[in-house]
Design a protein around this nucleic acid. Structure first.
Lengths: 112, 112
DNA sequence: ACAACATTTTGACTATTCTATAAATATGGA
DNA sequence: TCCATATTTATAGAATAGTCAAAATGTTGT
């Protein structure tokens, strides 16, 4: 992960519709969701604007897709997300105990 | 953390200069850095543009500052960062083991 | 009080991103 | 083959964000 990839990913997430899409896909798991269902869950329409946002997330490498019949399923790219999170917290407090809690899986209630 | 706070934070981070500033402050620890030193570390100038970016990060709640003499020290807001990271990964894979590694402190080489 | 320093604010200009609409592509079924 | 469905692409206009230069604010030392 370099600064350019990271800013691209953050730009992609920095929009309410796209953040909703991404979070929904993170929650959906490795099966993903097809565009219409995804839009349905978010009370959005599967129109040109929605498609534009999917493309932004794809270009940033945060989501992937597969075609199944005439549906296209989008899936969160978990490794990409993890790289981004790691990049943000890298070398936190120069390695010294900083007295602040750093995010861990345990804090997100439901990790393997 | 709600969607609006999260998008504001992500927008703030979604710019190369601001991401550099933020990461540098994360690495600097709770003492923070004054503007001139911060700019120096990033090969940037402590000018109006730099100040604009500091304000964006402040407004998003990602950094704080304190005045010391005629210097202003900026400090990463660790709890805000952690809330953001948690928000992005919340309910990952709907609680099912997803087979993907989720970011943990252990992966960032240097956590308390 | 004055001068120098550190940083922020303002305002005008440019660039980038978002939305809306319409048309295009691709797939599956009758 | 033809039609309906699912989704993307293209284009133009509207909205938002970023940069630059200059002036303003607040602080310290003399």
């Amino acid at each position: 992960m370099d600064i350019e990839l990271a800013t691209n990913a953050l730009k992609a997430l920095a929009h309410e519709t796209r953040l909703r899409i991404f979070r929904r896909l993170v929650q959906a798991g490795p099966e993903g969701l097809c565009v219409a269902d995804l839009a349905g869950h978010l009370n959005a329409e599967a129109n040109g604007s929605f498609s534009f946002h999917l493309k932004e997330l794809s270009n940033a490498g945060l989501i992937r897709n597969r075609q199944e019949g005439r549906f296209i399923y989008y899936i969160a790219n978990y490794p990409a997300m993890n790289e981004l999170l790691g990049y943000l917290t890298e070398h936190c407090c120069a390695g010294e105990p900083c007295g602040e809690q750093i995010h861990t899986c345990a804090t997100t209630e439901n990790n393997p």
